[in-house]
Simulated assay, not measured.
Amino acid sequence: MFNARVANELGAGNPRAARISVYAVMTLTVLEAIMISSTLFACQHVFGYIFSNEKDVVDYVTNMAPLLCLSVILDSLHVVLSGIVRGCGWQKVGAYVNLVAFYLCGIPIAAALGFWVQLRGKGLWIGIQIGAFCQTALLTLITSCTN
C-alpha cells in the first residue's frame, strides 16, 4: 500500500521521506515493467499458444504483443502515480485526470480507430493505450510539480 506510506510520511511532516519513497517505488516499478515487457516481447511468437493452437489466433496474439508490452509499462506507472495522488489526498484530481484521459481522449480515439478506421481490436487497444499514456503523463506532471 504505497499510497498509505506517502500519506503517513506527509501526515507526519516528513515530505523528504515521502519523496524518497516515491523515487524508490518509481524505480522498482520501471524495472519491473521493463523486465515483464521484455519477457513478453521476447516470447511473442510462442505466447499465443497459451490461448489456442490455431495459427490465426497465434498470429493475431503475436501481432498484438507489442501493445501488451506497452500496456504493462503504462499500467504499472499509472497505478503507482495514482497511489501517489491518493496519498497526497488529491482523490478529486485523480478522478479528473481519469475522466480527461480515458473518457475525453482514449475512448473516442479507440472508437474511431476500431470502427471508423476499421482496425478492429487493435484499434480499440491503441485508443485505450493512448488514454493510459495521457493519464500517465498527466499524473507524472502533477507528481513532478508537487512540492
Rank of each mutant, 00 (worst) to 15 (best):
P108D: 11
E32W: 14
A7Y: 08
G87A: 06
S82P: 03
S82V: 06
I126G: 00
C145K: 13
L28V: 14
L124E: 00
K92D: 14
N53I: 02
V100N: 11
Y49Q: 10
F102T: 06
Y23W: 15
P15E: 09
A111G: 07
T136M: 12
I130V: 15
L70P: 09
V80S: 04
S144N: 13
A7M: 07
A18P: 03
A18Y: 02
M1A: 13
Y49K: 07
I130T: 10
L113R: 00
N63D: 13
L141I: 15
A111K: 07
E54D: 13
F51W: 06
T27R: 15
L40K: 06
V85N: 09
F47P: 07
C134P: 03
I34A: 14
I128Y: 00
K122D: 02
G121N: 08
I107W: 01
V61P: 04
N8Y: 07
L113Q: 00
I84F: 14
V97H: 02
Y60P: 00
R19C: 06
M26H: 10
K92Q: 13
A18C: 07
F41M: 11
S21K: 01
S82Y: 11
E9I: 02
K122S: 01
K122P: 02
N3M: 13
S71T: 10
N53P: 02
M64Q: 01
S76I: 01
I142Q: 04
E32N: 15
V6E: 02
K122V: 02
H45G: 03
C134H: 00
P15N: 11
L74M: 04
V117C: 10
T140L: 12
T146W: 09
I50P: 02
A17M: 08
I128C: 00
G131E: 07
V97T: 10
A65Y: 02
C145T: 11
V58I: 15
P15K: 08
Q129A: 04
Q118W: 03
A110C: 07
C43Y: 09
N3A: 14
G89K: 05
A17Q: 14
Q44P: 07
A95D: 10
I20F: 10
F2T: 13
C88G: 08
S21E: 06
D75I: 09
G83C: 05
V57Q: 06
N3S: 15
G89D: 02
V80H: 07
S37E: 03
G87E: 03
V97K: 09
L10E: 03
I36R: 06
Y49E: 08
P15Y: 05
V46S: 13
L139G: 04
R19W: 06
A42I: 00
A33S: 12
A137S: 11
A110S: 11
I107M: 05
I36Y: 06
A95I: 12
G11S: 05
